[in-house]
């Protein structure tokens, strides 16, 4: 089955991102396809590469990036939600005249159309949120 995944909450405060990760990993293990993981609302904060969680805790951003790399899964941050919250890749940072970017490898910035497209392409779109 083809799954699309929407993550609406940031890392560590809510379980949504953890649950979405475990769901995605389990689906891939079972031979299903993940069309796309789309991060919206505070979910865009999952894409930071500057998080420094304690060593005995999970690294949520790195874990997503690894899953994406190993399985060729798209991790997309909504551009409008990301800009509001200061999640910038190098291009966006330059365009906005900011002195730094903070996006983790494996994540990309794109538009909300990618969420609608995931809904169209996938057999099931699963929403993880509050």
């Amino acid at each position: 089955m083809k799954f699309g995944i929407l993550v609406n909450e940031g890392p560590y405060t809510h379980q949504a991102s953890d649950s979405a990760y475990y769901f995605a990993a389990a689906a891939l293990r079972a031979g299903h396809e993940i069309v796309r993981v789309f991060f919206y609302h505070d979910g865009v904060n999952n894409g930071t590469r500057l998080g420094v969680p304690p060593q005995d805790d999970r690294n949520i951003s790195a874990r997503w990036a690894e899953l994406a790399k190993d399985n060729d899964v798209e991790l997309i941050l909504c551009v409008a939600a990301a800009q509001r919250r200061g999640m910038l890749d190098a291009d966006e940072a330059r365009r906005a005249g900011k002195d730094a970017d903070n996006m983790a490898p494996g994540f990309q910035i794109s538009g909300l159309g990618q969420l609608i497209d995931a809904g169209i392409q996938a057999d099931r779109l699963i929403v993880f949120g509050d």
Binding site: H41, A80, A81, L115, I116
Partner: peptide, 19 residues
């Protein structure tokens, strides 16, 4: 919370997809 505003943004963008 921002959910209502950002939901409306999805609806408006999604409208272009003729679903």
């Amino acid at each position: 919370t921002v959910y209502a505003l950002e939901s409306l943004e999805v609806v408006l963008i999604g409208a272009a997809f003729e679903q």
